[in-house]
Design a protein around this nucleic acid. Structure first.
Lengths: 221, 221
DNA sequence: CAAATAACAGGCGATGCTGCCTGTTTTATG
DNA sequence: CATAAAACAGGCAGCATCGCCTGTTATTTG
């Protein structure tokens, strides 16, 4: 299984429906470009102001587009939010793969788990993950957001699981352990991120080390 | 070290300055009662509507007090928020101790770690922890809130650490390991809470089991 | 080249929140 | 009992945001 095949399959599975084939018309290209500019501005708003800071006026200002253009692409705020949700999950997959696949060349099987775990820890420190956390937390108390968020989150989880089974056929007989290790890493890393301001780097590193030991022990058993 | 002594010491360390000695005047008692009613209403708002849902109007309505009474006790919204922060940390300590100390009677030393870990997992499933998460996440993007939250969070962490050393003198020589286990449990549990809607109970239980093994292994080493 | 359509610009009223303000009632004090 | 002070009630202006609306420009198509 080549890295590029894996990358293509996962990205296809998570690609927002709005991003179909590459358009040829100038208008459509410009439109898609403006749309992307607004989505990136929305991520900026999420990171700097949280879900409450994701307002149509703020996004329009950051993206340097008029409120009219905003309304043309996203009729209501929740339409924008739904697009941002898809965009964030897509970017999370894309950025993780870019990072991880750049490290796996010429490595042995056992090293891959460590590399994947380390890549995951790096991935939670990105602005995209910060935006994801804002959405995930806000979705717990906002039914409209949750209606867009939870299905996307479930699909992301399914793609993640399926890919793990496909990409590591050598461990197919113990994929339950792989899934457990993945869930474990996800929980530890996001929890560490939440408590980072209080814990500080030193205690973070200690917990990361302990977690890695637990994951390695899981594969030996 | 008796449980009640430990309980008193920790609660004293985290008690909000507003809660001094028990007042005797009717007015002051009524005032403190109203104040508490507003703080509890604020927690309700946090849990059901997130930090953005913590508005002065909503809190006043839930607490069934006028906006004038609200303003009398908390001149500005941020004053209310700061009081809520202290209230939440105090309640977290109080509820955890109520739970944990109710389970430690007649138990051996090694069991205490398991019991404390289980009590901690229960504590993150309370409405008070849900409110804490809302505040912790919002504090990352709201400087005013962070100015009230981070000092309180650090103090909570210090009280927690100091108490661990005081309460388990038999393991004083390996308190670094204890601290690491505590940090680890905190990270795993809060991370699991965030991903609970996607993971589901079964995978949650698996990760909890794996985490407990890692903690036990930590104490054997 | 003309008609149609897509992309974009900006304004308006409604809504909800905040801070402040002026009264009213209840309790404490000399 | 009179006065002060605390606790509480409710209203009003300022501000930001949202959804919707009417124009304007640029591109496509017959």
């Amino acid at each position: 299984m080549s890295g590029s095949t894996m990358q293509k399959r996962m990205l296809d599975a998570m690609r927002p429906s709005a991003l179909g084939d590459e358009p040829v018309r100038w208008q459509q290209r410009k439109s898609a470009q403006t749309r992307l500019k607004m989505l990136e501005a929305a991520v900026d708003c999420l990171v700097s102001g949280g879900y409450a800071g994701l307002t149509t006026a703020q996004v329009a200002e950051r993206a340097a587009v008029s409120r009219g253009a905003m309304h043309h692409h996203f009729a209501t705020r929740i339409d924008l939010v739904a697009a941002v949700v898809d965009h964030i999950f897509y970017q999370r997959i894309r950025l993780f793969l870019d990072d991880y696949l750049g490290t796996v060349a010429q490595r042995s099987d056992v090293e891959l788990i460590d590399l994947a775990t380390e890549a995951h820890w790096r991935s939670v420190q990105t602005r995209e993950y910060a935006a994801y956390v804002e959405l995930a937390v806000a979705a717990r108390t906002d039914p409209e957001l949750n209606a867009a968020f939870e299905p996307a989150a479930r699909r992301y989880d399914e793609v993640w699981t399926a890919e793990m089974i496909e990409s590591f056929p050598q461990w197919r007989d113990q994929w339950h352990a792989m899934k457990l290790g993945s869930d474990f890493a996800i929980a530890v890393h996001s929890g560490l991120l939440l408590h980072r301001p209080v814990f500080g780097q030193e205690r973070i590193d200690m917990v990361l080390q302990l977690s890695m030991q637990a994951i390695r022990a899981l594969y030996k058993a």
